[in-house]
Amino acid sequence: MPKRAVGVVYAMWLGEMLRFWRSKSRIVGALSTPFTFMLFLGPGLSSGFQFQGGGAVDISFFAPGFITMSVLFASLFAGGSIIWERESGILKEVLIAPVSRFFIALGKAAGGVTIALIQGIMVLIFAGLIGVHYVSGIGVLGGIIIMGLSSIGFIGVGVSLASRIESPEGFQMIMSFLAMPLVLLSGAFFPISDLPVWLKGLVYVNPLTYGVEALRWCLLGNSTIPVSLSIAVITLFAVAMLGIGGNLFGRIKV
């Protein structure tokens, strides 16, 4: 059985990879947003911000935010893809196979994390090319692990929503409703050290904030939220969302 389970997870992962590889336009689309943001928004924003106490906010400050943003989009999309697969009937074929849905979900999640990491790493490299300075190689490796953890959590969010929402249109609406506030309230685009209280509250309940902060610590060596707290929160978030998503996926009707 363990061998069988590995086979199923691998089959699902392989399917995700093949589909990802085939949809070049999806890759371009997914990367264009963070790339453009980084090229234009980064320099624009950094000219206007200053840390309290004087230090200038340079483009490096924004890099973790853009990387996390691309990981977020890729993850939500990967989780949400089951809505299209249910619509087109592909999911039915998978769910009728004599294998546990848990391993099917796990394989899909593994595929989603891989895709999110590929996209995140591409943004990370791009940021390095346009002058962002990373503190250490180990930091970058740590950062990739952080990206993976954030990705698991948001794949769980995508799967949960897709399991409950029936139409692709509805899902897309909820996504845009959700994704932008998550990004804007994550400290990706502004320092979170001195915000008005109400805004601070929103930023601190946003799980993405901890992903950005942990990544910032890994890549740049400093963060506002202690890195141990950030890692604890995103790990907990990943486990919780994996549980919820897996559960809802298990009860999905096709």
Partner: peptide, 26 residues
């Protein structure tokens, strides 16, 4: 089961569809 509606993945080749199915069935 051969469903009434088409449940193939049209983003993959015919062989890939069969291959993934074979893997799912161990």
């Amino acid at each position: 089961v051969v469903f009434q509606d088409i449940t193939l993945d049209d983003r993959l080749t015919g062989r890939e569809n069969l291959d993934l199915h074979g893997r799912l069935y161990g």
